[in-house]
Design a protein around this nucleic acid. Sequence first.
DNA 1: ACGAGAATAGAACGATCGTGCTTTTCTGTC
DNA 2: GACAGAAAAGCACGATCGTTCTATTCTCGT
Lengths: 214, 214
Amino acid sequence: MVYTPPVVVQEKQTDVLKTKGERTRHAILTTAANLATEEGLDPLSIGRLAEATGMSKSGLFAHFGSKEELQIATVEHAASLFVEAVIAPARSAPKGLPRVWALCDHKIGYLERQVFPGGCFFAATSVEFSHRPGPVRDRIEEMLRSWLSYLEHVVEQAQEAGELVDTLSAREITFELDSFGMAANWQFRVFGDPAVYDDARRAIRERLESLRPA
Amino acid sequence: MVYTPPVVVQEKQTDVLKTKGERTRHAILTTAANLATEEGLDPLSIGRLAEATGMSKSGLFAHFGSKEELQIATVEHAASLFVEAVIAPARSAPKGLPRVWALCDHKIGYLERQVFPGGCFFAATSVEFSHRPGPVRDRIEEMLRSWLSYLEHVVEQAQEAGELVDTLSAREITFELDSFGMAANWQFRVFGDPAVYDDARRAIRERLESLRPA
DNA sequence: ACGAGAATAGAACGATCGTGCTTTTCTGTC
DNA sequence: GACAGAAAAGCACGATCGTTCTATTCTCGT
């Protein structure tokens, strides 16, 4: 997989949301992203979202023009939250193995402290939209591809630094590492036991340990 | 996790579906389970399902009495297909490590040959229903718990036979093994590359190898 | 082959969906 | 503080949802 640097759709910071319109839009998208992880992005109706934000259907609708535009905006809003919670903090870790661990650890942390109440936004919505072609699916898929290719890129750097063996491809290592986060997200969602986050962290740590050259 | 033997809701075989009603019902449920993995179990409307089966809305509806009953029946139908595809064949493998591998391998095979067109029925629907209490969610959750606890039980047997180390709990090993299948299912769904099934098989095989006592 | 009962279809219901149009209320600038 | 434009609300639309009731067609044991 070719590495392309994650495209951060930079959301305006809360304090630079000048106009009332921008502020309400921001609030709507936050509510939408939260509800989407629990109830689904598509079943989330305009009426339901209006009720949750205390607005009228048409008042809310006017901010987006169509449901699809709302969904796209929600995905991009969620993407910026993901980058802020996982990618950005890991960037400050030293290149190589520490950054690999930082990425994985922050990903688990992002799940654990429920940045979204229903777990990972993209795990939830990607399943929903995987069989529904269109711009919404494309943005979700692009974000996930970006995440995985960045993780793979960082793994590759660790291999080049001699901190991870290269008997396995970066792709294979990435698959394994991400699996544990995915599974933890899913199991917590279904069974509600936070112990899976410890399982995931331990599995990742041990796997990285076993992949270090002798 | 306490082991309880998987409750196989034994569906009647195709050839013992005597009456026309039973045959139609069976066909409806097969279509419903297939569509549910692609489009979702809840967004799958009666009208859509009627169209897909070539029946009238009311004619189809009469078989179930409510949408929830239809969903429950669909889940149970899918459960019997899962048991038939994964659990049953693994039972003929020798107890211990071979059976652990057989279970995991058949699970991947079940995904690979698309017993359901949208991948694992329970992975798909559990995400959808995890935040929606009711009998549908309960059946899905019970089936998943049954699967995981059976896998854990088999892992435990392998440990007792000295074929797997017991420095890790059966629960932790089960978490790792199942993660790879989960992740492969999800990645194939999103990216469509069947290579992930090889990734999953390799990861499982290597992990089992590394867990064998010296 | 006929008749009873199962199986399916037809038509209609209230509710909710996304969306457009019109009107009212609010914001920020001078 | 008035005024222009943005923001929000009100209302109505056609479509589709799950569901009910009634009518028709089919199945199968006699």
